[in-house]
């Protein structure tokens, strides 16, 4: 009977938090919905890429590979600091965990700043959805830039949400609500951040490296 008693104690309303594995299952399922959300855009991309092969190549030449590569490295590094921050919490090293999490958020902001300049340059050249300049181009190029803005935009939105999420996690860390015994929130935030990274891992070659 003893095992059941443990079950009773953990399924009540107050003790839900303690279902550590359940919380992670829920997070993974949420990540799948994110994957399929971007998946819809990847579908659009693949269809139009197949249809307008050459136009996509022409349009992609105008994207700045260096900026893209720098952003890739920034995001990869932020994933490293994120993973290490979780490890630090698990080891009970709160200060290191906080430091690493702040670094992760800063990398996220750096990514956004970089993106801002990249988009800004394109806007200056009159290349944005619905602009006259873009309207005069080949159909495939219009679609390429439509996809570029939609996909990097949706990805950027996820980066913003990630940074906001980190500030909440940071607060919890500082208030010692996340600690060695209870760290599923920071771990789930990490899972989210890594997914955002994975999406970028695919976006980078598909937009910047198809010249």
């Amino acid at each position: 009977m003893s095992t059941i008693a443990a079950g009773v104690a953990t399924t009540g309303h107050e003790k839900h938090v303690s279902d550590y594995i359940g919380a992670k299952v829920g997070m993974w399922l949420f990540l799948f919905t994110e994957l399929l959300l971007f998946g819809g855009l990847f579908l659009v991309y693949s269809v139009y890429r197949a249809m307008y092969h050459t136009d996509f190549h022409t349009a992609a030449k105008e994207l700045n590979v260096t900026l893209g590569a720098v952003n890739t490295i920034i995001l990869l590094t932020s994933s490293l600091t994120m993973a290490c921050s979780i490890s630090a919490t698990q080891r009970g090293n709160r200060k290191l965990s906080i430091l690493l999490l702040v670094m992760t958020a800063l990398f996220g902001i750096a990514f956004l700043v970089n993106k801002y300049f990249e988009w800004g340059a394109k806007f200056q050249h009159g290349i944005y959805p619905g602009s006259d300049q873009l309207g005069m181009r080949e159909n495939g190029e219009i679609l390429f830039y439509g996809l570029y803005y939609m996909m990097t935009g949706l990805h950027g939105l996820h980066v913003i949400v990630g940074v906001l999420l980190f500030s909440v996690v940071l607060l919890f860390l500082v208030k010692k609500k996340i600690h060695q015994e209870n760290f599923v929130l920071i771990e789930n935030s990490g899972l989210y951040w890594h997914l955002v990274d994975i999406i970028w891992i695919f976006l980078f070659p598909l937009f910047y490296l198809i010249t």
Partner: peptide
């Protein structure tokens, strides 16, 4: 559906990361 109160997890070394 009943969960251990303490949970099993692995701490991955920084070096692996």
């Amino acid at each position: 559906g009943f969960q251990p109160v303490k949970n099993e997890y692995h701490v991955i070394p920084y070096r692996t990361y």
